[in-house]
Design a protein around this nucleic acid. Structure first.
Lengths: 179, 179
DNA sequence: CATCGATGTGTACACTCGTACACATGATGT
DNA sequence: ACATCATGTGTACGAGTGTACACATCGATG
């Protein structure tokens, strides 16, 4: 039965997992769903990822990496003369303008850490990297940490309530926090 | 078969659902698990709650109500002379000093709104009530909204990373936001 | 007291799931 | 060329699941 050798199968399975989770939520993640999405037999997903948690962790890793890379790019590109508050508002607007399902997935994966011990270290590491990035533009680390907390809380509120992003409101809060 | 008439069965089922979700996570919610916890036959849970979402929504409603009642009490009791920033820090410390599993459940239910349409309106309503409560002590609604966002983000960060609450850091941020 | 609807109970069905495992195949090193 | 092992494939099993439904029982209404 025409087995094809596929050196990138593992990657493709992770891609499929991300697609399934983005479209149907983490709850819909199953070996079978991912196998179907990747057009691969069931045994293949279980071979590369012994447990579902392994698969979830791999998906989160890739997603977090992309997220952090995007954020690093933002940090690099915006002119150094732009104040931190404005920079962060621009970042939020960029996120909201992009793919919504993708954004929801990112937060769903991130928040899954609340209950899944396997996911916690990755999510925690993600927070630390975000703080480190923001830190480059703030007076101290405490401020950076608070800014990231506000960022997360604001994004979650927007995603949950469906309320439109209020630029002026966010700007006022961010300016207060950055002194 | 000794059927006992039980006018409060519905409530007891909701209690059991909350207990199951608190101990094992929302993912472990099932008609059977709840029925076992409530010491009630399977058919009874499906009779009172046609679908699992109904049960989840009922659990979230009760949890949110308790949460908001606690917050209203906090708003009422603290002296009017205490500045908003200090008040919020006290609230956070109160939350963190309480039952951790309960706290995690509250946020898990709240964040479930991200992906479950049935839960969204309740979570959104919960945000609105929180904003209204905080609003009584702030200059404008935008500030109250920002404070609630920061509150949520901070709590989530603490719950996910396991980092201890940094009073001074939070106080500085809150003071900046409340002007 | 008779009746009827609300409530309670037990069981069965069809389905999905994770996992295990026997077997097939291709790549690689010698 | 051959042996070996990582990788790929198909299938089966047992455990859980939501849901439906037939039947039992109770409270209230007339």
């Amino acid at each position: 039965m025409a087995r094809r050798y596929d050196p990138e199968r593992r990657d493709r399975i992770v891609d499929a997992a991300i697609k399934v989770a983005a479209e149907r939520g983490i709850g819909a993640l199953s070996h079978r769903a991912v196998a179907a999405e990747a057009d691969v037999p069931l045994g293949s997903t279980t071979y590369h990822f012994k447990t579902l948690d392994d698969l979830l962790v791999a998906a989160l890793r890739r997603t977090a990496r992309a997220w952090l890379d995007g954020m690093a790019e933002w940090e690099r590109d915006l002119g150094a003369d732009v104040p931190p508050a404005e920079r962060l508002v621009a970042l939020i607007e960029e996120w909201l303008a992009g793919d919504r399902a993708r954004l929801e997935l990112e937060y769903e994966l991130y928040l899954a850490a609340l209950r899944r011990p396997a996911v916690r270290p990755i999510a925690a590491e993600c927070v630390e990297e975000m703080v480190a990035l923001v830190r480059r533009r703030t007076a101290d680390e405490g401020t950076a940490r608070a800014l990231v907390a506000f960022l997360d809380g604001l994004m979650i509120q927007i995603l949950i309530t469906g309320r439109p992003f209020d630029r002026a409101e966010a700007l006022a809060a961010l300016r207060g926090m950055t002194g």
